[in-house]
């Protein structure tokens, strides 16, 4: 009887393992879906990159741990995908963890030449990483710079000194744009010369960029109490328009066509809100698309579903999905301090 059972079990095990093999064909398990940047809590350095598959609602809380068997620690500010690699930026450990984009298998760690790295962009085959540098005794950031990374060997090969608190980075055409958030400057950088070639003066400390469908660059600015939006004309390097928005500006993005700009504000002592404007707007709407408490990250997918990352203090955060009229669709758990999304479709 027992022997029969064991043969049966072996056959079953074989059948199951055979099944599993068939399922695990390339592309990797993280090829298509939504990536969530969970910053993690400062004292625990427990940042993670979450993964959500909108097709079947599956959530992986820590894609790196799932792929590599153990977590990588850090306080993750952002993740940047380029070709078949993803770059996880840890501002606490001043390092970038490079993984394969579709499987999240570990590739390399960049830990030389970085100091509180924040965001990354790629241009001319090189990586450009904004670095705050150390705080001085007045909590100012006088030593900020951009580290230029050779993506073939993951070495920092050059640095570009910037204005204070360089933050959001983006590439449009053959230029790199960098937001120096502790000043009022957006730098224009030539990735051929690795030099600053020009710039914009913004109405506040510039944080993040969003490129609209007309090739204009929107920059979200925050001066702690007041916030503003500015539209940059890249061809003549002029600020075309700028206007005030609600306080505590935090995130900006566009819909797939680039006809609408979405941005999130988290003013003090009043509810946080997500607002939407046309790419021709010259003033801010009064009524948000949706509002709530603890809003910490914003994303909009190609179907114009709004993803909100809600921070619950040191508790794990929540991701809530809304239709574009602000009706809640569903929600699921995230890591601590989820601050943003990357959509890979």
């Amino acid at each position: 009887m027992l022997r029969h059972l064991s043969i049966y079990l072996m056959a079953l095990a074989f059948a199951l393992s055979a099944c599993k093999k068939n399922e695990e064909t390339p592309p990797g398990q993280f090829a298509h879906g939504v990536f969530i940047v969970n910053e993690g809590n400062y004292t625990d350095a427990d940042g993670s990159i979450g993964f959500y598959d909108p097709e079947d609602g599956m959530v992986v809380q820590d894609a790196y741990e799932k792929a590599n068997g153990e977590p990588v620690s850090g306080l993750f500010q952002s993740i940047y995908f380029n070709e078949d690699m993803a770059y996880i930026i840890d501002q606490l450990g001043s390092k970038i963890v490079v993984v394969k984009a579709e499987t999240f298998e570990y590739v390399a760690t960049i830990d030389e030449g970085l100091s509180t790295p924040r965001y990354m962009t790629v241009a001319n085959g090189k990586g450009y990483v904004s670095n705050w540098g150390p705080f001085d005794e007045n909590f100012d950031l006088p030593n900020s710079y951009i580290a230029v990374v050779d993506l073939s060997n993951f070495n920092v090969i050059n640095t570009i000194i910037t204005d204070k608190g360089v933050e959001g980075m983006t590439t449009v055409g053959d230029k790199v744009y960098a937001a120096a958030s502790y000043s009022n400057v957006v730098h224009v950088i030539s990735p051929q010369a690795d030099e600053i070639t020009g710039g914009f003066t913004t109405p506040g400390g510039p944080l993040q960029f969003a490129e609209d469908g007309t090739g204009k660059l929107w920059v979200l600015c925050n001066d702690f109490v007041t916030s503003s939006l500015a539209r940059l004309n890249l061809s003549n390097e002029l600020v075309e328009t700028s206007f005030s928005i609600a306080g505590g500006a935090k995130s900006i993005t566009t819909n797939a066509a680039g006809t609408k700009i979405y941005y999130m504000c988290t003013p003090w002592q009043t509810p946080d809100g997500v607002y939407s404007i046309d790419n021709t707007a010259t003033f801010a709407p009064l009524v948000p698309v949706l509002s709530g408490d603890g809003l910490y990250g914003l994303g909009v997918d190609s179907d114009e579903i709004i993803y909100i990352a809600k921070s619950n203090g040191t508790d794990n955060g929540t991701i809530i999905r809304y239709t574009l009229d602000g009706t809640e669709m569903d929600n699921f758990a995230a890591g601590r301090f989820p601050n943003g999304f990357v959509f890979r479709e």
């Binding site: 625990d44 350095a45 990588v72 620690s73 850090g74 306080l75 840890d90 606490l92 450990g93 390092k95």
Partner: peptide
Amino acid sequence: QSSIGAPT
């Protein structure tokens, strides 16, 4: 002592 992999 800092967290593993996040030296401070």
